[in-house]
Design a binder for these strands. Structure first.
Lengths: 334, 334
DNA sequence: ATTATTTTTGAATACGTATGCAAAAAAGAA
DNA sequence: TTCTTTTTTGCATACGTATTCAAAAATAAT
């Protein structure tokens, strides 16, 4: 039960070689004779040697760690995202430092931590960066990708679902199925995500001659969807369809409608966004817009890898389409 | 736009002191005169200095990183757990390396990564360790706490909900409300969690003279709950109540019952486990056993802190009670 | 004032690895 | 064989910090 940590020096001594050679076996994989390599591996195995990633990080200036700062992790969409990022990055040899942010702007001291730990890159989901934060990352040579948000004309790459397009398509679909009285339950208005969905939705409706969209502002939670739908449905307005900013909100809206004695989709059509697994549950069978999570994750990782290697980090914006998943929460009213 | 990283040496130079003194200001907080401290802080601020946690980790042999390996992150119970661990540990100055495991036993190479990065401690949720893994952590002086699982007579501390007690209480409750025909939808049988719940449930029922419990084996997913309930309800057996291994499973079971034209709770009582947020949604209004997540997380972190500081890591097992949350999925049949 | 005590400081070193460089060994060419 | 070329190896050093030790400065005691 040796308490002392075993280092490359110990391995070197046991194998009768220099520390450099041990390093070459476990690191760069540079030329090492087959004989010595075997001696070294045997010695390492016997001693239970594991390279010290911290020491390696210090000398190489690459930690192989990626910071991932998330928000709204309670929204089932994000655990899925987290899992996919983990899998994708693990297979490339990267590790995840997880942070949970509660604010629309990632806080300065959260950024400090990422810088202190010299992460090679950062993925930010569902949140933005102040311009001072931008500078700090840049100065410390840390690549950053925004996921599901973007900043126009910034130096930051971003990957997200094409929300504007999706909003349009959803409007088209509702019109095509004979709806006439529309409502939208949004997320917080300061997010590009929600604004783009709203814009696409409203503009497309306007093109069809519908200018009156009832809007309620929520916060992407079940409770806010429930409350917003109740408000909408209890108002004097006539409403035959609600487009919800995300699925959780939509589920809340459906339950609110039910609680008022309305039947979905017969009395009210509801459409969501994300396509979380619960959307397919029979109780809800929610028609929704599927975010192309796999493509988004892959794209994000790819961008990250590029930016970590390149000198000049030229920002690029990737808007991926997604698709409408038709289930049973929208009725054809024609 | 300086590309070179700024180090404590740079700060020292600018402030006209030695590197040691800078280190003392940002590190131990040892005696430093007020005057020099201010000079140093000013210089650091001007240069945008951030201590390098990697270098610090190398010399102190404390990385202030905790590995958290999770499973079933798609089960809404776990994002909540993750968030709470993050918050609790962040306020103590620790960072989280997130790993997603897919197996009942954490894999050897996942452990290797944690050792390479010299995490100070590890939290493992919903999974176990092989005995060789145990040795490796021990040898590398890494504290480990199991969360929601335990190994009998091991050197590992564990924190979990007292599942045996909960199973008993749930049985008592169902008996008290006049049920006579019981079923249990379990998780995988190799988990202590599910077995303890089952044992408590069955033993308590037996005490009341009920020896026949229909059991279906699931995997803690919605789909498995749906399928298991369907099997149970379509069998010739008469069943008036189902205890489900967790909430997600219970929701699946409820939907299965509905799909067969049964009404919950009138025709069938369903009871869950966890008390995830969805359990309180009006569509389900699930009676369930609330795991004391806050207490469990606090207890885990406390244990971890102790074990990281003590020489002799004596294992301790903490079973926390939890409580029955009564909603509307169980009917009083008396 | 002088001495004793405490506080503050800097020089030197260590942590465990990767890597440039030159020497040594091996392989190939003649 | 002898000379070139290539491959393999070890030495020495660097990464950025914390910390021991002894010297210096400041403070207290006499």
């Amino acid at each position: 039960m040796t308490k002392k940590k075993v280092t490359s020096m110990d391995v070197a001594k046991l194998a009768g070689v220099s520390q450099s050679t041990v390093s070459r076996v476990f690191g760069s994989g540079a030329n090492v004779s087959e004989k010595k390599r075997n001696q070294i591996l045997a010695a390492a195995d016997r001693l239970g040697y594991q390279p010290n990633a911290i020491a390696r990080g210090l000398i190489t200036n690459k930690t192989k760690m990626i910071g991932i700062v998330m928000r709204n992790i309670q929204n089932p969409f994000y655990p899925e995202v987290l899992e996919k990022f983990y899998t994708k990055l693990a297979e490339k040899g990267y590790h995840l430092i997880f942070m949970n942010s509660e604010h629309n702007l990632v806080e300065e001291d959260e950024i400090s931590h990422l810088i202190e730990y010299h992460v090679d890159g950062v993925i930010i989901t569902d949140a933005l960066l102040s311009s001072s934060a931008v500078k700090r990352f840049l100065k410390n040579d840390i690549a950053v990708i925004l996921f599901n948000r973007y900043i126009e004309n910034s130096n930051y790459s971003a990957v997200f679902c094409d929300n504007y397009f999706a909003g349009q398509e959803i409007a088209n679909y509702l019109v095509r199925t004979g709806h006439k009285h529309f409502a939208f339950i949004s997320g917080p208005l300061e997010t590009s995500t929600t604004m783009d969905r709203k814009k696409g939705f409203e503009e497309s409706l306007a093109k069809h001659g519908f200018f009156d969209v009832a809007v309620e502002i929520g916060n992407y939670s079940y409770e806010s969807g429930y409350a917003a739908a109740k408000t909408l449905l209890q108002s004097k307005k006539q409403i035959d369809s609600i487009f919800c900013g995300n699925d959780i909100t939509a589920l809340g809206a459906i339950d609110a409608a039910k609680s008022l004695g309305l039947r979905v989709p017969n009395d009210l059509s509801v459409i969501g966004f994300d396509d979380i697994s619960m959307a397919s549950w029979p109780s809800y069978s929610l028609t929704t817009w599927k975010q192309p999570v796999d493509a988004m994750v892959n794209s994000t990782v790819e961008l990250l890898m590029n930016e970590m290697n390149e000198e000049e980090k030229k920002a690029s914006i990737h808007a991926l389409p997604g698709e409408l998943i038709i289930r049973d929460s929208v009725k054809d009213r024609l």
